[in-house]
Design a binder for these strands. Sequence first.
DNA 1: CCTCGCCACTAGCACGTGCAAGCGGTCGTG
DNA 2: CACGACCGCTTGCACGTGCTAGTGGCGAGG
Lengths: 332, 332
Amino acid sequence: MRAGVGKRVTAADVARSLGLSRATVGFVLNGTTGQRISEATRDRVLAEAARLGYRPHKAAQALRRGSSRLVLLVIPDWPVDFSVSKCVEEASHTLEEAGYSLVTQTHHPVGTARPLWELLDPEVVVGFAPFTPEEVAAMQGCGITKIIPGPEPRPSPPDPLGLDDGPRLQVEHLHTRGHQRLGFAATTDARVSGLVASRLGAAREAAASLGLPPLVVRPVDGAPDAAGQAVQDWLHANVTGVVAYNDDSAAMVIGAALRGGLGVPADLAVIGHDDNPYTALFVPSISSIRIDYAGLGRHLAALALLAATGRPLLDGGVDAATAVVARESTGA
Amino acid sequence: MRAGVGKRVTAADVARSLGLSRATVGFVLNGTTGQRISEATRDRVLAEAARLGYRPHKAAQALRRGSSRLVLLVIPDWPVDFSVSKCVEEASHTLEEAGYSLVTQTHHPVGTARPLWELLDPEVVVGFAPFTPEEVAAMQGCGITKIIPGPEPRPSPPDPLGLDDGPRLQVEHLHTRGHQRLGFAATTDARVSGLVASRLGAAREAAASLGLPPLVVRPVDGAPDAAGQAVQDWLHANVTGVVAYNDDSAAMVIGAALRGGLGVPADLAVIGHDDNPYTALFVPSISSIRIDYAGLGRHLAALALLAATGRPLLDGGVDAATAVVARESTGA
DNA sequence: CCTCGCCACTAGCACGTGCAAGCGGTCGTG
DNA sequence: CACGACCGCTTGCACGTGCTAGTGGCGAGG
């Protein structure tokens, strides 16, 4: 027996329907500690609330308690949403268990739309990539103090998201397949320059620790036939295996190699990163790095909750399931 | 001179600081009609509000006026976010000019996270794809009545988003290139079955109106080597051109053809849909359909505003810029 | 001089919720 | 039987805003 359409069921409705006070209903529904409510009353309240289809009015809750219990996740304008969505789903679920909710916003640096943090006033803003000083200032101007990653140049725990494992696995995979001289296919896309640098750094470290010669780094986009030039350079440097920044870069390398009459992986082995779904569709299919996005989501949620409540949450960690997906482009 | 961090500046603060009543401040800041406020007072209020850094408390506004001025855009779990983001940006901008804000949610049918419409109570929920009856019921249970597309089987204006143009252009493109017997590459993904049916229907209409024989429809995923089988079937049916549901389907067809020793486009021409960025990376590169996502965004925003306010908004339309992007897979 | 209307503004309610404080009844204890 | 402890519940305030009804002052008209 739901109330008429358009009329919201309030806690007062539940109370009135039971002949109780609104406070009692509130105590039951919030499980307020320090209040004594008999089991019988509790059950009656819960049953009646369910029967009437009561839903707390979030705006009123936010107003009263002064906090929206909202976490805003700002996703950069990367073309990797296929994986991010899994991450978001998991983070959302984790936050929900703690009474928080996740709202995502894909952020356009050039965008004109007003950022969501101005109107949702979330308790925490989490970004996949660090925010610019201007953005941080804008958030602080809205009263938002909990920002992840923090404004410091380098996050306190280096690589808190455990994303440095991928490049290491790329290098080790090619090394295991017998490749000694490796190239790195970079993108010139300014939006992800930080991420490129991070992955390149990790790849360099991995190569060094395996005793391999320095990586031959080449951009594969930006200029016309940049990928073709990169492939030429790698051939001259006797490079036989290429670590690509991501799957798009890998695809560009493979495309240039094929168009140049080379065999992949026979003449040049290539491994991408992110395990974008289309990697399996290519000819040859593209080896890549699968990331534990679910774990990453849980990790982000834990970070956000820590910031919001001050209480740490047990966090399963993220980097356990980062793994190589071997396909044809490296000889699978 | 901003108030101390953590303390919100309210309209009452502005009023107190000027020795005015809170109502006066409210009238000025809302531009309430039917109230007489002297120019001098108005200026003083605006200046003081700016000086103190006043930001209206959205939760309080939503509580008081009973409407969140929020539009929730539910994006299905499609891997097309590259284009959706442009659409969202544009819709967001259009809505903003009308005082509304856009929040997006990528929706997972199997997801366990509670949908955002339960906690943001948006005025309008807009979906790229029609909602299931269960979803519609869930929304109505939360008091949300304005849902786009509506629950009726077929939206009142057929194809309100103007998305039927793409398949027509695909068919016409192949026809122009001399192909008579066409195939249609479908996906078995249940999440997009409605969209597949819609695109297939449009393609069939286009083929019929050109006097072409019926489309040979085959799924290209779901079963192992479904794409390979589809290619075989098309060959036997003398099909030389394939209209793919989207770029992924196109890639699967091309992959299967290449692995079967066929030439693309020499033996089989293929055109995708959505102009996914990776279509340019394939070998051969994949012809596709570019959609005017910016226009689509404006159109969606206009629909949402119409539902929210009842007043129609002038709408530039969407289908003008849907266009073929000719690449190698159809002989460019 | 009184009244009426207008101007510019104020008092105050309502939205739905969370929670501190209080209050009547019952039970155990001296 | 008196008294305090405690249980179970209610009264009532506060959050910040939008807006209706009203209010005092003042000039104009009769």
